[in-house]
Design a protein around this nucleic acid. Sequence first.
DNA 1: CATGAATGAGGTTTCATTCAT
DNA 2: GATGAATGAAACCTCATTCAT
Lengths: 209, 209, 209, 209
Amino acid sequence: MAGGTKRLPRAVREQQMLDAAVEIFSVNGYHETSMDAIAAEAQISKPMLYLYYGSKEELFGACLDRELTRFVDEVNSNIDFTAAPKELLRTAVLAFLNYIDANRASWMVLYTQATSSQAFAHTVREGRERIIEIVGRLLRSGTKNPDPDIDFELMAVALVGAGEAIASRVSTGDADVQEASELMINLFWRGLKGAPSSQDVDATAVISS
Amino acid sequence: MAGGTKRLPRAVREQQMLDAAVEIFSVNGYHETSMDAIAAEAQISKPMLYLYYGSKEELFGACLDRELTRFVDEVNSNIDFTAAPKELLRTAVLAFLNYIDANRASWMVLYTQATSSQAFAHTVREGRERIIEIVGRLLRSGTKNPDPDIDFELMAVALVGAGEAIASRVSTGDADVQEASELMINLFWRGLKGAPSSQDVDATAVISS
Amino acid sequence: MAGGTKRLPRAVREQQMLDAAVEIFSVNGYHETSMDAIAAEAQISKPMLYLYYGSKEELFGACLDRELTRFVDEVNSNIDFTAAPKELLRTAVLAFLNYIDANRASWMVLYTQATSSQAFAHTVREGRERIIEIVGRLLRSGTKNPDPDIDFELMAVALVGAGEAIASRVSTGDADVQEASELMINLFWRGLKGAPSSQDVDATAVISS
Amino acid sequence: MAGGTKRLPRAVREQQMLDAAVEIFSVNGYHETSMDAIAAEAQISKPMLYLYYGSKEELFGACLDRELTRFVDEVNSNIDFTAAPKELLRTAVLAFLNYIDANRASWMVLYTQATSSQAFAHTVREGRERIIEIVGRLLRSGTKNPDPDIDFELMAVALVGAGEAIASRVSTGDADVQEASELMINLFWRGLKGAPSSQDVDATAVISS
DNA sequence: CATGAATGAGGTTTCATTCAT
DNA sequence: GATGAATGAAACCTCATTCAT
């Protein structure tokens, strides 16, 4: 009665705060974001932030966690794992590009921010592994006889790097989604060929249909 | 007595300062580095830093410039521009990744810092565009009958994105240079085959421009 | 225990801070006053000053505002607007100089500081113009048949200049209020006779505007 | 030979430095002027400033002294002390206005600056007395039977204050020199009537012709 | 539960001033 | 005699963080 402050359930508050934090962090970067700014954006008081998250560092860590999970879940759930490999790849690429395009203030952005402070090396490393795992599984599942020489992880790094760059172009309107998808699918597809030889190889021969 | 207060010519001091700045910036990151720390490392007083470089931002910029120049020079001098296209590509990629592997405490680290700080976003973006343009021209000129449907620039965006990601991995010691090189070479090379018919590449014609 | 860290309502703290700031500013001058000194005098921490007033300049501005308002209010309330013109003039001049005499550590000192600091030159100039305008209208309306040859504004400039100089002298204790008042009254009164024919003045008509 | 630096006689160097100092001090104010700026304007090195003047404070003091002397000498030498009182007054006013108009970076400006630091109270007081002496002599010399009740000093303060204000207007082109002179002459002339009475008094009756 | 009020600590920057050549 | 090189000291300002209500 006195304050006019709504009493919200803990879970809701938490999301509200994280929403604000992710928004501001991703726009201004970790160091250039103040707790004041986050509290203001979340329309709550600073002590609440500290009550729920303990410190700026932990808050940023929580953002990182949530966005990574969202990213993984959303992309995962939009991939058609039952489809044929090439189709599966197509759904994966589209899921990825669409997510990045639709959620600019999200995992990839925070991930980049996180690299600016040694405090998040751990979290970043963890996140990295989860992504690798997905893409790796994807690649592996598309390959009939997985060549142990193929480093799925590193390939995943490259492809995700490419994907991020492309997605950035897509989201600024400088690239067409259809075209971008084709390009990435080709990159992935051929990437699977791995290997030293420079000759063309029929990918279908390597990858199960 | 303890060796401290020599009166050095300007040029020498400049290098001394940059050495210190690069060292500390790359260990602690831009924001977590104080001018005090740099001054201490360089064994000079803070006002000297400001006298020579004007501000923290400009000092960081000077570090970026110097390291970029070193990087470009070193990589350039290790590329065999006389070799056949594919070999040329191989030497280029190796030069690139080897430099990053051998100089972990400099270019890539600063670049990453610059990427995640609002103040240098502009500079980084510009630099990236320039590289993308170069790679784009390389792809186009390397394709015998350029299919107008192929968007070489977007391909360049993807390849540069992949390259950055890989390089980042190498610089943290999480990836092996040899393996990473082969992966990148393949990616580039096959990128050229996005067009149905692609053959020789005359890279020197592009790179020298 | 020693009385320090009470939790005061905003309005109270504001006055406490302004009191301290006025005190220190008027003793040491604008530039030679540090925010630390003001904070110490107000027995609060520096961040409070910045929280409430934003910057040293704004804090000084707030001091200026408060003291000006006090000054104007006090002087205004001691003028007998119902008296005959000459008597009105006398009460006005006396109110003016008496205030300055009685409050040496406030208005005039801050005003002098403001005058000699680049940052407030603009504000001071504007304020002076407004006063000149008022005095100018006073002179004009006080002259029965205004001779178009008389430049009332310039006369006002001279009188205000004289008034400032006298007030400055009074505030340093180098001049006697009584004597100074008579001198100013005569100067003003005779200023009106710059025109060959001048008589009654209806000051209230001007001042209220 | 080695340095290309001219070896100037001491007196010349001193003036060169003071010229620069007066220029910068009067434009920027005492506190907002750096020794660097003065050295640059004087085209000499900072240690020279310290060699010749010891400290910023002393340098400013020297400026004050020189400008006061110049002002006094110049104005004095342009007054026709042999003329009849009213004509003498006219020459005095013109000398004053012309000087202020022609030398904006001069005594009055520095004088105002000086009031912003307690360090110059002494110098300011001295200067004040010299001015008073001139104006006082002027007034006294124009008065047949100097009334001991007339405070020539305070009158001088008022008139100089008025003069400064007017001169400022003149120098910005907002006032005409002729008109301004007339106005000031009237102010001076009537000022001599001093005294409590509000009635008109024929000034010529009080002042010798 | 929620917050307005408060601060310790530290960061960037500037300046008057002095060596050592 | 003259100066480029160098610095101690201090100023303004911000921020993550915590009480006391």
